[in-house]
Nucleic acid binder design. Sequence first.
DNA 1: CTGTATCCTTCACGATACTG
DNA 2: CAGTATCGTGAAGGATACAG
Lengths: 136, 136
Amino acid sequence: MFASQNPDPRMAAARTPPHPCASWPDNGQGIRDTLDRVGDKWSILVIGILGAGPLRFGALYDQVPGISQRMLTRTLRHLERDGLLTRTSYPEVPPRVEYELTPLGDQMRETAYTFVRWATDHNDEIEAARHRYDNR
Amino acid sequence: MFASQNPDPRMAAARTPPHPCASWPDNGQGIRDTLDRVGDKWSILVIGILGAGPLRFGALYDQVPGISQRMLTRTLRHLERDGLLTRTSYPEVPPRVEYELTPLGDQMRETAYTFVRWATDHNDEIEAARHRYDNR
DNA sequence: CTGTATCCTTCACGATACTG
DNA sequence: CAGTATCGTGAAGGATACAG
């Protein structure tokens, strides 16, 4: 890793154009961190589902098709850690635990929605491009 | 694929919603596919950088901090396959290859920008939540 | 310069069994 | 019901060498 950004002011007037991650803010650092955080297999899905309102563990388990118990637990813990949802445990028997988006989490859901919508709307178009490429 | 959109008016009054991925369109299928496609470590970064204009292989390699040659090639191939960018090879010596976003790719970049912007703007907030969680 | 071809490591994830 | 503990697997990605 020797050719990262060059913060040396003396090199400011070097020949070749600078090497920022153009077009993305923060040199792409924000999206890098965020993808590491919610770019896994289930996070976005869980966030989307919780957008409809708080749910308990079992209900989430039913609504995320294909997720394992282990991954649901892990995903929820991570999202809780990041402040995107809250976990509320009720001291009953049998135990009941409810998960709910925080304002921050809901904000993220709203922001992601635009992108998800685009993805859904252009799925066919991308799929078509794939087939064209494969039969080139 | 049996649970796509159902425009049939006779099904309008069906029973309670079984297991829909509420809050996301297409039962989350679009975002599932899209994350499988551009949710890897580099795709979004490359798309963002190419938003500033076409670049050749070496320039991209310089501008994506930390990427390996292998992964840059793979990422570019995948994005080309999905119709998000074009690859133009000029028959010169030494070889010159330019990559440029397609209209579809640029549309995706624009759509993603909102989300990336949010991610960048709230990075600190999330980082703080993490720290709070770890010291709970 | 623009890639391939191998090899290797890590780790995300799934399956299963068990627990308060 | 809502988890945890443990093990196994595959795939993603990095390092390096080589090629057209």
